[in-house]
Computed example of a mutant assay.
Amino acid sequence: MSTTVSARPRPRGTPGGVQRRRERLTAFGMVSPAVVLLLCFLVVPVALAFGLAFTSARLVSPTPAHFVGLENFRLLFHDPVFARSLRNTLVFAAVVVPVQAGFGLALALLVNTKVRGTTFFRTVYFVPVVTSMVVVSLVWLFLYQKTGLVNHLIHSFTFGLVTGPDWLNNPRTSLPAIIFMSVWQGVGFHMVIWLSGLQTIPVELHEAAAIDGADRWARFRSVTWPGLRPTRAFVLITITIDAFRLFTQVNVMTQGGPVDSTSTVVYQAVHTGYDQQQTAYASAISLVFFVIVLAVSLIQRFLTREKD
């Protein structure tokens, strides 16, 4: 005679239920520091910037802030300094993104070989990345001086026929000088990213292409470049974001000058918000800049997406 035992639901407070609650509390305790940091340094500042952009708030003012609607944005789009800063930012990004990505890929291809000394060159190329941007900017500030090393090398290599300009005090050369320094400082990081992508491509594909008689350029075009599609998208997006948030080099080396020739959107927002204490206007600049960067990133992501 067989008996059937019906499964009864485990009552609340049993060891299994207590264990699950402990696991949830443990998970919440482990994630809570990150959540608090995100709220304090990302969500709250973004919300404040969005709200302040529509007010007359100042950093220090006896007059309380009041709602002004789109007045800050109207002033912004008629501000010649903002137009110059936006143009400088776009020029910087348009030059740095392809040049830094191209040089990074070239260096990755050079060090992606099994020859003696490869590790040494990988380290040398990566040293500027781990150096503080403030330190790098100060070093290049001295190199770019009228009597600095850059002009001394130009004078020596041209046998005294060419005299270098005062790079950072000339409106025509100040932004190109910062562009060159920025590419030099950041190319090592993207070299490592490209290198990691190169090492994910199976060696058998290169060997098969070589057996078929393909030369190096043909192997790069048909094997290497298609295999770098995910890496390519990541590199382009990260370089673009870094280029748009250009600030440290300008703040240390030129302070936006001469004649706003190196002023960028981020530098103008910080300068306006803290030095001029126009918090609401700086928030409007930041909000417009956020929309521009978001649009560029989405377009870039769409163009580099995986296609079926």
Score class of each variant (00 low, 15 high):
residue 225 W to C: 11
residue 189 F to K: 03
residue 150 V to Y: 06
residue 238 T to Y: 03
residue 152 H to Q: 11
residue 125 Y to M: 08
residue 28 F to Y: 15
residue 92 F to W: 12
residue 187 V to A: 12
residue 91 V to S: 08
residue 179 I to H: 09
residue 55 T to P: 12
residue 104 G to P: 02
residue 179 I to K: 07
residue 225 W to Y: 15
residue 15 P to M: 05
residue 105 L to I: 01
residue 91 V to H: 04
residue 133 M to T: 15
residue 49 A to T: 15
residue 164 G to K: 03
residue 289 F to S: 06
residue 265 V to M: 14
residue 40 C to E: 04
residue 1 M to Q: 07
residue 103 F to C: 14
residue 70 L to D: 04
residue 47 A to I: 14
residue 172 R to S: 08
residue 43 V to Q: 14
residue 261 S to Y: 01
residue 87 R to I: 02
residue 192 V to W: 03
residue 104 G to E: 01
residue 300 Q to D: 00
residue 15 P to S: 10
residue 1 M to L: 05
residue 90 L to Y: 03
residue 248 T to N: 04
residue 201 I to T: 12
residue 34 A to K: 01
residue 152 H to G: 09
residue 119 T to W: 02
residue 79 D to G: 11
residue 145 Q to T: 12
residue 61 S to E: 08
residue 84 R to N: 06
residue 168 L to N: 14
residue 254 T to C: 10
residue 231 T to E: 07
residue 251 N to Q: 15
residue 292 I to K: 10
residue 55 T to Y: 09
residue 199 Q to C: 01
residue 27 A to L: 15
residue 36 V to D: 00
residue 101 A to T: 05
residue 227 G to C: 09
residue 166 D to S: 14
residue 137 S to Q: 04
residue 144 Y to I: 05
residue 221 R to K: 07
residue 6 S to Q: 13
residue 108 A to H: 11
residue 219 R to Y: 01
residue 123 T to C: 02
residue 275 D to M: 09
residue 73 F to L: 13
residue 51 G to I: 01
residue 297 S to P: 01
residue 142 F to N: 11
residue 61 S to M: 02
residue 212 D to W: 07
residue 213 G to L: 05
residue 142 F to T: 10
residue 114 K to Y: 02
residue 254 T to L: 13
residue 4 T to S: 11
residue 295 A to P: 06
residue 33 P to I: 02
residue 279 T to V: 10
residue 216 R to N: 10
residue 123 T to H: 00
residue 192 V to C: 10
residue 197 G to R: 08
residue 178 I to D: 03
residue 78 H to P: 00
